[in-house]
Design a protein around this nucleic acid. Structure first.
Length: 653
DNA sequence: ATAGGGTTAG
C-alpha cells in the first residue's frame, strides 16, 4: 500500500498495518543500542502505515538526543511525512535544521523538500529550493514539474519540460505523466497531443501502459474529447480501477450520465474490485443528478463492500442524500460513520445551509470542536453561506472575523464574495464595495457579479453602472452580465440603454445555459426544458397547469407577474419566460401521474439546473396551499420547501 | 531506512 492510498484504505487493512508498527515499536523500545538506521526505519514504518504524525514526533525526540543525529534518510522521510499531512510549518522547521547541519545539499533532501513544499501548496518555496539544488537529477526536475502541475501552474510545468530538454535531460514516464496533467489542467489539448506523440515514439505508452494511459484518458476527458479518452481506455490491456474511474468521472463531468453509468457497469462486470475512489465518484454523479433511488441502491451495496468504510465514500453518500433533499438519511449516515473528517462536517454544514437551516448549520460547526477537527477554508465558506441563506447577518460577520483571525487559513475571493453578497443584499452597498476595494485578494468576475446583482436589487444605478463597466471589461462573454446591466437600466427608466445592451448580446451571439428541470417517478427520471413538448403526456400536463392557475387566481390571488429574483445571475431571458418554465412542466407531470393514485406519501421533489424564477416561486407557493402538498425544489442555489403557501427560503433567495 | 507519475468526497 502506498502512503498516498492510506486515507482511503479500509480499516481492517490499516489495523493490520498498525499492529505491525506497534510490534516494531516494542522491539525498538527494547533495543539496547539504537542508531540512526533503527530510528529512521521506525519512522518509515509509521509513515507507511499512514501515521505521519508519529514519525514527526520521533524526529522531535531524536532532536533532543545527543547520541544519535538524523541523516539525509531521516530528513527526507520526514519531509514526506510533512507533505502527507500538509504541515508546511513543520516542513520549514526541518528545512532550517537541514541548513544548519549541511544536509540541505544532499540530493535526496532537496528533492523531498521540493515535493513537500509542493504538496503543502507552497509552490514558491518549492521553486526556491529547486533553484538552489546544485545538481538537478531527473527526479529533481520531475518533482518540480509535478509540483507545478498539481498546483495549477501548468504553464510552468510545460516551461520546465522544455527547459530540461534543452539542457539535455531526457524525460521519462514520470515526466510525461506530470506534463500531461499540466495539459489537462490548462485544457491545452494541442500540447497534450504532442506529448501523446512522444509517448508513442519513445515506447513509454507500451512499457508503462496502465499509468501513462491513465493520464491520457484524463487529458482527453478533461478537454472534452471523450471519444479519444474511450479509445485510449479500450486499448489498455490491463485496465486498472483508476483508468475506469477516470473514464467514469470524465463522462459525468461532460454531462453524459448514461455513458458514465455504462462505464461503471462494465467495471462491475469485470474482475477488478471497486475501491473507494470509484464508489465516491459514482455517488457524486447520483448526487448531482439527484438520482435518489439509484443512490439508495448503491448505498446498500456500499455497506456490504470493504471500501464502503472509507471516509470519502461515507461523505459522498451523505452528500447524495442531502442533495436529494433527504436530510434524515444523511444524518443517519453521519451518526453511524466510524470516523469523520473535516469534509464530513463540511458536507453537513453545506447541506443544512442549503435547506435554509442556518441555526442547525451553526450547531454542527460548533460541534466539530468536540471531535478535535478544525475547520478549513471550505468549512468557513459553508458556514458563511449557511448564515447568508438564513439571513443571519450578525452570525456571518462573527464567523468572518473568526476566519480572519485563524492563522491557518487565508481567506480567498469566495469568502469575500459571500460577505459582499450578504452586505449587498441587506442594502450596505458602499460597505460591500469597500470590502472589495480593500481585500487582500484579487477580485474575480464572480464577486463583481454579486455586487452588481445587489445594485440591481437596491436600484442603485450609479454604482451599478460603475460595477457593470468593470465587470464587462473582465468578462464580456457571459450573457448574465449583460442581462443584469440591461435590467438595471430598465428599472431606472433608461430604456434606450437597456435595449442597447440587450441588442449587443444578440450581435455577439452569446448563448446561455437553458433551463432544465427533472423529476423522478417510479425510478424513472423525466427531464424537461422550458416550453418542452416532447413528453407524451404534454397535453394533459398543460391542462393540469391551466386548471391550477385558474384555481390559484380564484383562491390565493395569484397574479402571473414576473417578479425579479434577487440573484438573477442565471435569470432566464424574456423570451424564455413567455414559455412554460421547465419546473412547472415537471410539477404538472407529477400531478397528472398522481391523479390515478389515492394516497401518495412524502413530498414531491423537483430539481432544476438554474435558479427558480419569481413567478414559478409564487406559483408553487400557491399550489402548496391549495393542494395541501409539500414541494421540495432544489435549484442551482439552494432548496425551497413549499408548504401551506409558504417557502422555507422566506422569499429571499 | 530515503527522493518523482494516472482517480475520489465538501
Amino acid at each position: 500500500m502506498r502512503i498516498a492510498d492510506f486515507n482511503n484504505a479500509n480499516y481492517l487493512e490499516a489495523t493490520i498495518k498498525d499492529c505491525r508498527v506497534e510490534m516494531a515499536c516494542k522491539v525498538f523500545d527494547r533495543m539496547l543500542e539504537r542508531n540512526v538506521v533503527s530510528w529512521t526505519s521506525l519512522m518509515c514504518g509509521y509513515l507507511n502505515s499512514g501515521n505521519a504524525n508519529t514519525s514527526l514526533s520521533l524526529l522531535c525526540q531524536m532532536g533532543g538526543s545527543s547520541i544519535v543525529k538524523p541523516n539525509e534518510f531521516t530528513f527526507s522521510t520526514n519531509f514526506k511525512a510533512c507533505g502527507f499531512i500538509r504541515v508546511p510549518e513543520n516542513g520549514m522547521q526541518i528545512h532550517g535544521w537541514c541548513c544548519k547541519t549541511g544536509f540541505e545539499w544532499f540530493p535526496v533532501v532537496g528533492n523531498s523538500m521540493i515535493d513537500m513544499y509542493s504538496k503543502c501548496g507552497r509552490i514558491d518555496a518549492a521553486s526556491k529550493v529547486f533553484d538552489k539544488v546544485p545538481e538537478r537529477s531527473l527526479i529533481t526536475w520531475n518533482a518540480m514539474i509535478a509540483g507545478y502541475a498539481v498546483g495549477h501552474n501548468g504553464d510552468k510545468s510545460l516551461d520546465l519540460f522544455k527547459k530540461m530538454q534543452i539542457q539535455g535531460k531526457l524525460p521519462d514516464e514520470f515526466t510525461f505523466t506530470s506534463t500531461l496533467k499540466a495539459c489537462a489542467g490548462l485544457g491545452d489539448i494541442n500540447s497534450g497531443r504532442q506529448i501523446h506523440g512522444y509517448l508513442i515514439s519513445t515506447g513509454f505508452l507500451l512499457s508503462q501502459q496502465t499509468i501513462v494511459s491513465g493520464s491520457l484518458i484524463d487529458l482527453y476527458a478533461k478537454c472534452g474529447y471523450l471519444q479519444d479518452a474511450q479509445k485510449i481506455f479500450d486499448q489498455v490491456e490491463r485496465k486498472s480501477v483508476i483508468s475506469w474511474t477516470t473514464l467514469v468521472v470524465g463522462y459525468a463531468q461532460g454531462g453524459n450520465l448514461s455513458k458514465a453509468m455504462e462505464s461503471y457497469r462494465s467495471l462491475r462486470k469485470s474482475t477488478i474490485p471497486v475501491d473507494g475512489f470509484v464508489l465516491s465518484s459514482v455517488m457524486a454523479v447520483f448526487a448531482d443528478f439527484a438520482l435518489l433511488q439509484q443512490g439508495k441502491q448503491m448505498h446498500a451495496y456500499i455497506t456490504k463492500t470493504p471500501s464502503g468504510l472509507d471516509i470519502s465514500v461515507g461523505n459522498s453518500v451523505m452528500d447524495m442524500y442531502l442533495k436529494c433533499g433527504v436530510i434524515e438519511d444523511a444524518d443517519k449516515v453521519f451518526d453511524e460513520m466510524p470516523k469523520r473528517n473535516v469534509v464530513s462536517w463540511t458536507v453537513m454544514i453545506t447541506g443544512y445551509g442549503k435547506h435554509g437551516l442556518g441555526k442547525e448549520a451553526i450547531n454542527i460547526f460548533e460541534k466539530m470542536k468536540s471531535e478535535n477537527i478544525s475547520p478549513d477554508g471550505v468549512t468557513y465558506l459553508a458556514i458563511l453561506s449557511s448564515c447568508s441563506h438564513s439571513g443571519l447577518v450578525d452570525k456571518s460577520q462573527e464567523y468572518f472575523s473568526r476566519l480572519q483571525n485563524d492563522p491557518t487559513i487565508k481567506p480567498n475571493v469566495e469568502h469575500y464574495a459571500c460577505m459582499v453578497d450578504l452586505l449587498g443584499r441587506s442594502g450596505h452597498l458602499k460597505e460591500a464595495r469597500n470590502l472589495i476595494n480593500n481585500m487582500p485578494v484579487k477580485p474575480n468576475s464572480g464577486i463583481w457579479q454579486t455586487l452588481l446583482s445587489a445594485c440591481k436589487l437596491h436600484k442603485d444605478l450609479e454604482m451599478g453602472r460603475e460595477v457593470g463597466e468593470i465587470l464587462l471589461k473582465m468578462d464580456d462573454l457571459t450573457t448574465v452580465n449583460y442581462v443584469m446591466m440591461s435590467s438595471i437600466y430598465a428599472n431606472a427608466g433608461f430604456w434606450k440603454e437597456s435595449e442597447l445592451i440587450r441588442k449587443s448580446v444578440k450581435v455577439k451571439g452569446l448563448k446561455k445555459v437553458g433551463g432544465q428541470s427533472w423529476v423522478e417517478i417510479d425510478k424513472t427520471i423525466h427531464f424537461f426544458y422550458n416550453g418542452d413538448e416532447r413528453h407524451p403526456l404534454t397535453s394533459r400536463i398543460h391542462e393540469k397547469l391551466k386548471e391550477i392557475e385558474k384555481r390559484l387566481k380564484e383562491e390565493v390571488q395569484y397574479a402571473h407577474e414576473v417578479r425579479f429574483s434577487l440573484h438573477d445571475v442565471e435569470e432566464e431571458s424574456r423570451e424564455e419566460s413567455l414559455r412554460v418554465h421547465s419546473e412547472k412542466l415537471a410539477i404538472g407531470l407529477v400531478l397528472v401521474h398522481n391523479d390515478g393514485i389515492k394516497e401518495h406519501r412524502g413530498c414531491i421533489r423537483i430539481f432544476k439546473n438554474l435558479r427558480v424564477c419569481g413567478d414559478c416561486h409564487e406559483f408553487i407557493k400557491g399550489l402548496s396551499k391549495i393542494s395541501s402538498k409539500v414541494f421540495l425544489v432544489r435549484d442551482a442555489n439552494r432548496f425551497h420547501k413549499f408548504e401551506n403557501g409558504e417557502c422555507s427560503c422566506g422569499d429571499y433567495w
